[in-house]
């Protein structure tokens, strides 16, 4: 049953991704990327990652769609006709994909309770966090406490990105006004 749900969601994801590839209306492309994020949020729920699912739904489908729509309004609404088909990107992608698939052959079976990812640290977090921290949601406990410095680093990255965006487009309105005065 679970496999059926995963396969259905995966099919919808592939259709969305191919539609993104084919569409030339950027508005449709941006909306489809929101759909893609929502579908991946559904997939996260079936994979037991509920926290990731709602973050993806809020950030991936919400904020990033809004940002892309804003960029689209400031730039252009349509993609030009694609260049002539060239086989090089296709070859690169197929080569990368086959190398990655070759790499997965050594991986443990999906959902296997003996997979190395589940030994040591994960078990320790699951058994100790009720005593150490006492928060029912283990993900929150790890995020805010055991790996608090990670979260601090993440905040630094977000701050840096904010500063970068402000520097890049901060003077946009001012420059536009100057341009208009220059042309008049």
């Amino acid at each position: 049953m679970e496999l059926f749900i995963i396969l259905t969601l995966f099919f919808m994801l592939v259709v969305t991704a191919i539609a993104i590839l084919m569409m030339r209306h950027l508005f449709a492309v941006v909306m489809l990327s929101g759909v893609f994020s929502l579908l991946s949020a559904l997939l996260f729920v079936t994979l037991d990652a509920v926290d990731v699912a709602f973050t993806e739904a809020a950030v991936g489908a919400g904020i990033s769609t809004v940002l892309m729509l804003g960029t689209m309004a400031l730039t252009s609404r349509n993609e030009k006709m694609p260049r002539d088909f060239s086989p090089i990107p296709l070859l690169v992608v197929i080569a990368t994909g086959s190398v990655l698939i070759y790499g997965t052959l050594d991986m443990p079976i999906f959902g296997s309770p003996t997979s190395p990812a589940l030994s040591h640290l994960a078990t320790a977090y699951l058994t100790q966090s009720p005593h150490d921290i006492g928060v029912p949601n283990v993900v929150t406990a790890i995020l805010a406490s055991y790996r608090g410095y990670d979260t601090l680093g993440e905040t630094v990255v977000v701050f840096t990105a904010c500063v970068g965006v402000l520097i890049l487009i901060g003077g946009l309105a001012r420059r536009r006004r100057k341009d208009e005065e220059g042309t008049n």
Binding site: V52, T55, L143
Partner: peptide, 14 residues
Amino acid sequence: SNPLPHVLILTAIV
């Protein structure tokens, strides 16, 4: 399920 990948991916999304 293993909570550790969830934590790492939460950071990665942001």
